[in-house]
Every structure is written in structure tokens, then in C-alpha cells.
Write a protein that binds this DNA or RNA. Structure first.
Lengths: 194, 194
DNA sequence: CGAAAATTTGACATGACTCAACTGGAGTGG
DNA sequence: CCACTCCAGTTGAGTCATGTCAAATTTTCG
């Protein structure tokens, strides 16, 4: 179980056996069933969450009551409302599980302890945040530059694993289009994408 | 001159006189004239840039040759292609100046030195990145949830200073619409925004 | 002053939305 | 095991927001 966490961390930092023990002592393992919430709007995010197994969906609800998917989460990904976690303010986003999901979670105090005892972990989390930032910028750029069809094709080629495990109407929400539009552009016979 | 930099840094970290001296020794002051580039696509970003005076525009060019504004930069803001800076790979974005602009710049080696000599600066830069990330997420959420008119109204209320100093067609590019559309939605007499 | 750039306006095209109906599969209870 | 419901997905028709192309007008700046 811990292996999944340690293996992924090892991609970015090398951990000694003692450090692995420290990591093990600071994270909590937890499972959620399909449809359960890891985080609900209005709560203060108390944990950052590392997904061992399963699929999550991070979404916001706008003033008109519409849901908008900001991110899907898969094995080895971190999810959470970073802003809420860091500032200890109520979250604006929700995270629920699209499948039964297993995670490791760390609280803010434990994360501080981790930084203290294993300083190189600070580097790892800076990289996680940077990657998240870069992904967000890319998404802004693509929403400015590309049509719905192009964004869908990008999505399927970039995240084929997600496409297979998530209902279409959630993908539509992620892409910022209606399920009907998604259905239509999926059915049209490979229009030239220029 | 240094004051502008130090004042802003002081919002996040308290610096002793010696630390101010260190900061002063690691940053370089530079001026750019309107239309000059701080960064051009394909170059490796050697500096992170702090704006003392002026306005910048960060943009990408898509395969069709269209420019898309990712960010405007104003006094007290940091700009730069973070990914390129950190990974030392060629930048995908360009940054040019919409007015004569004065900046402080820091190289990667100097930034490492700064972290070493004034460790609390690491905290400052983590916060800068976090804020940038949060702004990017907000922008994704708003591009999913809102109409062009709503995004424009959000923009003008959130960045009135920018609206006054930047040509409309650049704002249109930032909003992801054509200059014609922007002109039209500006002229329509305050439609209900529900 | 005059050229180039920015903005506005008009006419028309189109991509994506809404509303509505229909299909098919998954789960539930009699 | 079938009838029923629920929900995701698809399809059709009409509408609307925004884009495209083109031209007129205004502003900027050398």
C-alpha cells in the first residue's frame, strides 16, 4: 500500500529507509466509495490527497447552479483545493469519486513536519505546484486558441485513460461544452482539424 | 529604485538591512522601451522579472499564427515563462512591453544564492507561484462558466488599471474573443448580465 | 500633415446552445 | 423474469452568440 506513494515520490526525490518510515507515519490511508466526497464546497481543506487507486473529479458550481469540471484525478495524482488548504479558508471546489477510490492524505501540520524532517520534500511539492500551474496555463492557452473539436481531440490523446473511465457528460463539462455538443462532435466523421 | 523591489518584497517577508543589501546585489535593473521584448519564443528564459514601472504582455502564438494574450504585467508583478526558467528549455511564450518599462531581474544561479543566503525568500517565491496558479485556475473556471460579456465585466472590475492602459484588441485577445466582438459588447447598453 | 494602426459598423455565416423527443442499458421491485 | 423507472447518450429543429469578411471612421504617432 505505502509502496504506491513511495514509488511515486521516488520519481522526484530519493528517500532513505528512515525517510520512508517518516513518510509512512505522516500520511493517512483512506478509502472512499463511488459518489462519496473527498471535499465539499465551504469546508476548509484539511488534507492534500494522493490517489492510489480510483478516479476523482474536482468541480465548481457557478451562480446558475451549473457544475464545471476543473480536473480529473487518477492514480498517482495529487488532488485538493490548494488555495483552501494553504490559506485555511473555505473551499470553492468540490471533489467527489467517480469510482471507489483509495488515497493517502496529509494534513497541513504533518506537511510542515515532513518539510522539517525531510527537507527535500519541499522540493517535491514545489514541483507538484509548478506542474499544476503549468497545466493550468496550458489549459488557458488552449481554451483561447482552439475549437471545441480540437480541445476534445487534445484531451483524448493526452488522457486516453481518463476518457475510458469517465462518463461523457463529465468530459463535456471539463471541455466547457454541453453533452449534446460533445456527442455531435464525436460522431462527425473525423473532420479535418485545421 | 531598489525601494520598489524591497517595498513589495516586504509585503511578504521582513528583510534586515543586510538582507536588503544582498537582494540589491543579486538583482539587475534594466529598462525596456515600448515594443521591446523581454522574452522571445524559443529563447531560454534566463531571468525572472519584477516590474517596477510599465506594462507587459505575455502571449503565445498558435499554429495558425494567431497571438493569444496569457497575462498582462503591471507595477509590482512578476512576469516570465516559469516553465522555461526552471527547466532551462526554450520558452513557448513571448513577453513584450506595451509602455516603456523598468524592471528588476534575477538569474537562476542568483535566485539559488538568494534562497541560500535569505532562506525566507523561498517562501516568498512559493507564494508568488501559488498566486499565479490560483489566478490561472480562476481563469479556467471563468472561461468554462461565463459568457464573453461576463468575462469582460469581470476583467474590467478586477483590473481597471489594466483596461485603461492596454489597447482593446489586446484585451480581446486576453478574453479570447475578436476585437469586433469586444467593440460590440462594449457598446451594448448594459445588458442584464444574468 | 500623412501613413499606419486601432476601433467601429454592417452583412452574413456558423458553431454551439436550448428544448424536446427518442433510444438503450442498468438497476429495482413485484 | 418481466415491467418500470432512471439516467446517459443521441438526434432533430430552431435560436443566439460570436466569428468572418469588408469597409468606414477615428486615433496615434513619426
Amino acid at each position: 500500500m505505502l509502496d504506491a506513494l513511495v514509488n511515486t515520490l521516488s520519481k522526484y526525490v530519493t528517500l532513505t529507509p528512515e525517510e520512508v518510515t517518516i513518510v509512512g507515519s505522516l500520511f493517512t490511508f483512506r478509502t472512499f466509495r463511488k459518489h462519496q466526497y473527498i471535499l465539499q464546497e465551504g469546508e476548509i481543506t484539511r488534507h492534500e490527497t494522493f490517489i492510489v487507486k480510483g478516479v476523482t473529479r474536482t468541480f465548481e458550481v457557478d451562480e446558475k447552479g451549473q457544475e464545471h469540471v476543473l480536473q480529473f484525478g487518477l492514480e498517482d495524482w495529487w488532488v485538493g483545493d490548494l488555495y483552501s488548504f494553504l490559506t485555511e479558508t473555505p473551499a470553492k471546489s468540490n471533489i467527489d469519486c467517480l469510482e471507489d477510490t483509495q488515497v493517502y492524505q496529509i494534513t497541513k501540520p504533518n506537511l510542515e513536519t515532513l518539510y522539517e524532517k525531510v527537507p527535500k520534500m519541499e522540493r517535491h511539492f514545489r514541483i507538484v505546484i509548478q506542474n499544476a500551474y503549468i497545466a493550468a496555463i496550458k489549459r488557458v492557452a488552449s481554451s483561447l486558441a482552439k475549437s471545441a473539436t480540437e480541445r476534445y481531440l487534445d484531451f483524448t490523446s493526452q488522457y486516453p485513460q481518463i476518457e475510458q473511465r469517465v462518463p461523457n457528460h463529465q468530459i463535456a463539462s471539463y471541455l466547457g461544452i454541453t453533452p449534446q455538443s460533445l456527442s455531435r462532435l464525436r460522431s462527425q466523421p473525423h473532420k479535418k482539424q485545421k
